[in-house]
Amino acid sequence: MTLSRLLARVAAPAAVLVALAAPALAGPTCTTAARDTWIPEDQMKAKIAEMGFKDIRSFEVTKGNCYEIYGHDKDGRKAEVYFDPTDARIVKQEID
Rank of each mutant, 00 (worst) to 15 (best):
Y82M: 02
H72E: 15
P85R: 02
A21C: 10
A46K: 07
K63S: 14
K63M: 12
T32C: 00
L25A: 08
R35E: 14
G52C: 06
D75T: 13
S4L: 12
A34R: 15
A46W: 07
E60N: 12
D75K: 12
D36Q: 13
Q43M: 02
R5E: 04
C30S: 05
R89V: 14
S4W: 05
T62I: 03
E50T: 09
V81Y: 01
K74Q: 13
T86S: 12
V61F: 03
A33D: 14
M44Q: 01
V18K: 08
A12K: 08
L20G: 14
P28L: 05
A11N: 08
I69D: 06
D42R: 12
A21R: 10
C66S: 10
F53A: 05
Y82S: 09
T32H: 14
C66T: 13
V91G: 06
V10G: 07
T62Q: 04
T31Q: 03
K54Q: 15
Y67V: 02
D36A: 15
F83E: 04
K54D: 11
E94H: 12
G76S: 13
L25K: 02
T2Q: 03
D75N: 13
A33V: 05
T29H: 14
E80T: 11
K74G: 10
F53N: 01
R89E: 09
P40N: 11
I90C: 08
L7Y: 03
L20F: 11
K63Q: 14
K45R: 11
Y67F: 12
E41Q: 10
A79L: 00
P28K: 06
V91Y: 00
H72A: 14
T37Q: 15
P40Y: 02
R57M: 13
V10S: 02
P23A: 12
L3F: 13
P28C: 04
P13Y: 00
K78M: 11
R77A: 15
F53M: 10
D96T: 03
F83H: 02
L7A: 03
